[in-house]
């Protein structure tokens, strides 16, 4: 394994560790007693005290942090106060919605971004380019939950092709469940795709000005062959980085979009837990989402090493 990958792996672990610390501190140090938060300000002192004991809040913070972490590492999540079940149990069904949703949106946005970006770059400064850039500028400016509402207006209220929300569950057939995720994933992917498309276009245009592209043309390669063999792979390097960074926004987007479409996924669970003041659930979910972002970015780094031979050999 090259030094690059070792470094990235250490960073990966450190970021995960940092995420747990930040989450723990945010819920711990910030004003507000978790027990009091759960029971509400009006709760009698005795009840609050009992809950504090039950949650182990009388023990030192460091001890509780390590309890929590070692629990997570062994797959032991906290217990929801509201539902009285393990967070893991709550997650099982919900991940079945959030992960497919995020993946569909990711794939959709990448397909959108690469095809639009490539098209715009090949039409540089012509009508096609200007149109794509204009539309993507609009796409970036539209809040995803509003786009979701507009999609509901058009396809559910007006055309009645889709239902306005809800999720039938995978057990009742793959197609109905998949269908329920189509509008949400479009709403999620459009904004991400618009950002990525603009980025892809400028990365391609920038690469096309490189000397080695001129070399390829001087060899006799056609414009199209040059684009596919020499430009695209080089242009993908910055695009992949942005894709990784965008994933955090994509996950954040699922929280919003799941709420618009009333999908019982992880994002909706977080919001419900907040309104029910279920701190234990919030804490575990936040760490889970952060971990997903970090893991995706680690894979992006791995992808780097595949694309760029300079990283395999050199210690950067």
């Amino acid at each position: 394994m090259s030094l690059f990958l070792v470094k990235r792996f250490i960073t990966f672990l450190a970021t995960l560790f940092g995420a747990t610390i930040l989450t723990f501190l945010a819920l711990e140090i910030l004003p507000g007693d978790p027990a009091l938060v759960i029971l509400g300000v009006d709760a009698p002192d005795s009840a609050v005290e009992a809950l504090r004991l039950e949650m182990g809040l009388d023990r030192p913070a460091i001890e509780r942090y390590f309890d929590w972490i070692s629990g997570l590492l062994q797959g032991r999540f906290g217990t929801s106060y509201t539902y009285s079940v393990s967070v893991l149990e709550l997650l099982e069904a919900r991940l079945g919605i959030t992960i497919p949703l995020a993946l569909m949106a990711m794939v959709l946005s990448v397909v959108m971004a690469l095809s639009l970006g490539l098209y715009a770059a090949s039409q540089h400064n012509k009508r096609g380019d200007v149109t794509v850039m204009g539309v993507s500028q609009l796409g970036i400016s539209v809040p995803n939950f509003w786009l979701a509402l507009l999609l509901i207006l058009l396809f559910a209220v007006h055309l009645r092709w889709f239902s306005a929300g809800g999720f039938p569950g995978w057990e009742n057939g793959v197609w109905p469940a998949f269908k329920a995720l189509i509008l949400p994933s479009i709403a999620l992917a459009t904004v991400q795709g618009a950002i990525l498309a603009r980025f892809t276009r400028s990365a391609i245009l920038e690469t096309m000005r490189e000397d080695y592209v001129r070399t390829a043309r001087a060899k006799g390669l056609t414009r199209r062959a040059t684009l596919w063999k020499h430009v695209l792979r080089n242009a993908l390097i910055p695009v992949v980085t942005i894709m990784g960074l965008q994933f955090a926004n994509l996950l954040a987007g699922t929280i919003v979009v799941e709420n618009v479409f009333a999908l019982p996924g992880v994002g909706r669970l977080i919001l419900q837990s907040i309104s029910q003041r279920d701190v234990v659930v919030v804490r575990d979910l936040v760490v889970l989402l952060a971990a997903m972002v970090v893991i995706v970015n680690f894979f992006v780094d791995l992808l780097y090493a595949v694309i760029d031979p300079r990283l395999k050999a050199h210690d950067i």
Binding site: L27, L30, P34, I255, V256, I274, R277, V286, V293, N297
Partner: peptide, 24 residues
């Protein structure tokens, strides 16, 4: 720079959610 890298991996909305969960 490492700290800002770290913050990038952490969606803003999650922090907002945590703040809201504790302070309201």
């Amino acid at each position: 720079m490492r700290m800002s890298d770290f913050m990038f991996a952490f969606p803003a909305i999650l922090l907002a959610i945590m703040l809201v969960a504790t302070i309201g």
